[in-house]
Design a protein around this nucleic acid. Structure first.
Lengths: 251, 251
DNA sequence: ACTCAGGATTAACTTAAGTTAATGTCACAT
DNA sequence: ATGTGACATTAACTTAAGTTAATCCTGAGT
């Protein structure tokens, strides 16, 4: 199989990085960014639908997503798949408790994406030199865990309509943090099968439920673009409150 | 309502703490444990079925569970409940991304329990003086997140029998880390309703499924005691492999 | 313009899990 | 010993979601 990885010829300097404030490196003052950049091995571009790593792989890199969408998921022994989270720019990927063991999940790009690569080895050294980064990672991981908890509630205790409403609003809100000027329409690169594997339903039932939401004028979803038509109704359905998605630094 | 909190008259010193190696303080050398102890506000004992904090509360403490079982759960607007995790001795509680905001979940003791109380304020100071603790927290949080992911897969992509099998093995393995000499029987303080709210089923269906597992001789569950009768079969059912539950320090 | 393939849509039918409601059991208090 | 309440157990019935399988789009490549 061909190696899809491509080093970006014109890697962007950390000092002018447009997504830094969304990433763990918001904790590092401008004056020390050159140090961070020394730990960055490279910037790497991948086309849509390629894997960054597979569940079970030994993997020695850590990533900060620079642009694009990445889907994190787990595979079951019976062939099933459960999506854990969608990563947006600034998100930190491939951190897990057993840093030397096999990956507990897979990561696949949904769109063309660019990532900054930080070898695990460097991470530990960085923590040592910049303890505030360790705190930052703890904070980011706690945030991701909290989101995971919301997903768990979603799948464990809600019906199909509520699950979809929640997913849409969760992505909509996170997207708005990245693009504050966003209107009611956002890119939505996943397929209905991806959605099904996120909310714990089948593709067919997702389609059915989507139809009902569409007919009631709550959302429009087509051609990888999602439009929120009736925010209050969706929000009510989802049992969602935006405050759940914190994005403030810890300190 | 009466205040159930009770300061333990004979608080145990950190230096002789039997659960330290299971907690974040495994990262602190013996010689510096007195410092940790200075950050500990108190040791507190609670009877079974009392809340440590409620979802929505402002809460300024952080805890390390010293003994007993604590259930963490979220409440839905429709009255539903989703259990997020069961805490065992050594576990770190009430850490969340928004340290000053309302709690995102509730915590309730299942058995009589004792906790070591560390005010949030002290935490930040501790991180400052012992950066390795921040790394440790990042590691612990990542571990909890990974467990959360397993729960998500369980609820999102498995049938009733598989979900129960998984829950039993997960708790069995974690219990064994605490009590290596454990046989096939372990304490199991939760009710069938708790189980239902953990695996995303109804109480009635949990009971039905439990009967089928019992009739096939896979487990025995009665009087708050669980016996694993056919480990291989359960393990096969659950799609579980013990390696998922890492418990090694990060550094 | 034409083909192909990955998605999206639907309908018909099945089933796992939910609901309701009654009864049983056991620990504990009086 | 008796009553009370929290849990556990079952059965009968309902329903939300799963399964199977056909058809339809639509955008990319020739």
């Amino acid at each position: 199989m061909a190696n899809h990885f491509k080093k970006t010829s014109s890697a962007i300097s950390c000092s002018v990085c447009p997504v830094r404030q969304l990433s763990m490196y918001q904790a590092i003052p401008d004056s020390q960014l050159d140090i961070v950049q020394q730990y960055r091995a490279e910037q790497r571009s991948l086309p849509a639908k390629t894997h960054l790593y597979h569940q079970g792989d030994k993997h020695t890199n850590t990533y900060t997503l620079f642009s694009g969408w990445v889907m994190l998921y787990k595979t079951l022994s019976n062939g099933g798949r459960q999506v854990l989270r969608y990563a947006l720019p600034g998100d930190f990927l491939s951190f897990q408790p057993d840093m030397t063991g096999p990956m507990t999940h897979s990561a696949q790009t949904l769109t063309d994406s660019t990532l900054c690569v930080f070898p695990r080895q460097n991470l530990l050294e960085m923590f040592h030199k910049h303890p505030e980064l360790a705190v930052q990672i703890a904070w980011i991981t706690a945030r991701d865990m909290t989101l995971g908890h919301e997903y768990l509630v979603n799948v464990g205790r809600k019906n199909a309509r509520e699950r979809l409403a929640f997913l849409f609003l969760e992505l909509f809100h996170r997207m708005r943090m990245h693009v504050p000027e966003l209107g009611n329409t956002m890119p939505f690169p996943m397929t209905q099968e991806d959605i099904a594997d996120t909310v714990g339903l089948t593709l067919v039932h997702v389609n059915r439920t989507l139809r009902s939401l569409r007919q009631e004028g709550l959302v429009k979803l087509a051609h990888h673009s999602l439009t929120i038509l009736d925010y209050p109704a969706l929000s009510e359905l989802a049992g969602y409150n935006a405050e759940n998605l914190v994005n403030q630094p810890l300190l």
